[in-house]
Amino acid sequence: MADVGTLQEQALKRKERLKNLRKKTAQNEDDEDSLKRKADDSGEDEIKKPAFKNYKPEDESLQQHLVPQTEVPKVEEQVQDQLKAAVAEPVVEEVDITNLAPRKPDWDLKRDVAKKLEKLERRTQRAIAELIRERLQNSEENDIVSALTAHSEVSEKEKATYDSDSD
C-alpha cells in the first residue's frame, strides 16, 4: 500500500512540472510575438525601395536603384583547373615486382636453415678432400704424376684456345 501512495505523489509532481513547462512555453511565445510586432511597427515608417536586378528602368530617377550586374564566372576555366588537379602524377615510375610478390610460405625456414647448411657444406668439402687424399696415397706414385701431367697439358691447351679466341 505504501507503493500506491508514492506513485500518486509522483504523478502529482509530474502534473505540476508539466503545468510549469506549459506556462514557460506560453510566455516564450508571447515574448517572440511581441518582438515581431515591435519590428513590424518600426518597419512601417520605411518604404521599401525597388532593386532592379534584371530590369533596366527608363526613368532616370530610378537609375540609382539599379543593381550592378555581376560577372558570370567562366565555367570552362574552372573545369580545366579541376581536370588538371584531378590528374595524378605517378609517384613511382617503375614498380619492382619482387617487392609486390608475396613471399613463399617456406622463406623463413630457408632463412633459419641457411646457417646449418653452411656448416654442413664445409664438412662435406673437408670429407671430400680427405677421400681424395686417401685415394692418392693408396694409388701408385706414377698414377699421380701421370694424372698431374695430363691435367697440366689439358689446362695449357684450354688457355691457348681461350687466348686465341679472345683476340
Rank of each mutant, 00 (worst) to 15 (best):
E44Y: 05
E44D: 14
E44S: 13
E44I: 11
D45H: 13
E46Y: 10
E46G: 09
E46S: 12
E46W: 08
I47S: 13
I47W: 07
I47F: 08
K49E: 13
K49A: 10
P50H: 09
F52C: 09
F52D: 06
F52T: 07
K53S: 10
K53Y: 15
K53A: 07
N54D: 14
N54F: 14
N54S: 12
Y55W: 10
P57R: 01
P57G: 04
P57W: 04
P57Q: 05
E58P: 00
D59Y: 03
D59T: 01
D59W: 02
E60M: 03
E60I: 01
S61N: 05
S61T: 06
L62P: 01
L62Y: 02
L62W: 01
L62R: 02
L62D: 02
Q63P: 02
Q63N: 08
Q63T: 09
Q63C: 07
Q64A: 08
H65G: 00
H65E: 08
H65Q: 09
H65I: 02
L66R: 01
V67A: 08
P68H: 08
Q69N: 12
Q69H: 13
T70S: 14
T70P: 06
E71N: 07
V72K: 15
P73K: 07
P73L: 03
K74V: 10
V75I: 10
V75P: 00
V75R: 03
E76W: 02
E76L: 06
E77W: 04
E77M: 04
Q78I: 12
Q78E: 14
V79W: 01
Q80V: 11
D81W: 06
Q82T: 07
K84C: 04
A86T: 07
V87L: 13
V87D: 10
A88K: 15
E89T: 14
E89N: 11
E89W: 07
E89S: 12
E89R: 14
P90K: 15
P90N: 15
V91H: 02
V91K: 06
V91Q: 06
V92W: 02
V92Y: 00
V92T: 06
E93Q: 11
E93A: 05
E93I: 11
E93D: 11
E94F: 04
V95K: 02
V95M: 03
D96N: 15
D96T: 07
I97M: 04
T98S: 04
T98Y: 01
N99V: 14
P102E: 00
P102N: 00
R103I: 00
R103Q: 06
K104L: 10
K104I: 08
P105G: 05
P105W: 01
P105R: 05
P105F: 03
D106P: 00
W107G: 00
W107Q: 15
W107I: 10
